[in-house]
Design a protein around this nucleic acid. Structure first.
Length: 271
DNA sequence: ACCCAGGGTAACT
DNA sequence: AGTTACCATGGG
């Protein structure tokens, strides 16, 4: 990876197969948008980033400290995805999926934002999920010059489900409040989920009303970077029924979640 | 009017 | 233990 400092940005070459647009817009994160110039923009935590990719170059409009201290890890730029995809290619369908949409990285999102986002995702579609999350941030996040932050669990914990009416989240409002309360009072312990094997996280997260197996797996994969987490939504279920009636291939051991992300995007985009 | 969406709960057999 | 209606909302 070659990193050059520009006057207002960091320019990167030789960053492997990473695809910025695919990674931020393949259904794992919901706050990235394209501005008039096609640059990808989002608020993550209390930071803001504008970024673009063109002609083999990746440009982050931020300084070196921010890139090295946060974004490099957020985009998982130091993991060798080419090697992972090569390993997955031992399976015919995974070979096709990884070849069809190369460059997807798992984004290392904030655990609370991932949990809350995937609670909202249940029995919902991606455009509407984005809308609800936008309204959640506008109503309860902190306003900065560049946009609204994602509201903390502590901020939402003091609210009642009816207070979330402006979100038009439907039956999910009460689940969001229950999650906020159990996370902020440590009844659901994020530090232990980070430290312990995935089985602990599975049980811990499902103590929350409205969190079942699928939302828990998404939270563990995108919020805790547990790459063996395996979320099965309606699209992945179709793939499992059509292509893997006898189970998921061994070559995906420990990275089932990454394999799942390629299959999800492949199935939605090309079938 | 009907069906579906990155599901989960509760109430049934 | 395995099915099924129902849950709010909006787009096709």
């Amino acid at each position: 990876m070659i990193i050059k400092k520009l006057h207002n940005a960091i320019e990167i070459e030789d960053f492997g197969s990473f695809d910025l647009g695919l990674s931020v817009d393949c259904g794992q994160a919901f706050r990235w948008t394209q501005n008039e110039t096609g640059h990808w923009c989002a608020v993550v935590g209390n930071r803001y980033l504008e970024a673009e990719q063109s002609e083999g170059k990746l440009i982050f409009y931020t300084d070196e400290n921010e890139f090295e201290g946060f974004w490099r890890n957020y985009f998982d730029l130091d993991t060798d995805y080419a090697a992972i995809c090569e390993k997955l290619s031992a399976d015919t369908h995974l070979k096709a999926a990884t070849a069809a949409c190369p460059g997807i990285h798992i984004l290392k999102q904030e655990p609370w934002e991932a949990l809350c986002s995937f609670i909202i995702s249940q029995n919902n579609n991606i455009p509407r999920i984005k809308g609800i999350i936008d309204r959640l941030c506008e109503n309860f996040g902190e306003k900065a010059e560049y946009g609204y932050s994602f509201p903390s669990a502590e901020r939402l914990a003091v609210l009642e489900p009816e207070d979330l009416a402006p979100l038009r989240a439907g039956f999910r409002a009460k689940y969001i409040i229950d999650a906020a309360r159990k996370v902020s009072n440590k009844e659901v312990d994020f530090e232990r989920i980070k430290a312990e094997p995935i089985e602990f996280g599975r049980e811990e997260l499902q103590k929350i009303k409205g969190v079942g197996a699928k939302v828990a797996e998404c939270t563990l994969l995108y919020g805790f970077y547990k790459t063996e987490a395996f979320p099965v939504d309606v699209w992945v279920r179709r793939i499992m029924e059509e292509m893997y009636p006898d189970g998921f291939p061994e070559c995906a051991d420990k990275v089932q979640g990454i394999a799942q992300q390629y299959l999800f995007h492949w199935r939605r985009t090309f079938f």
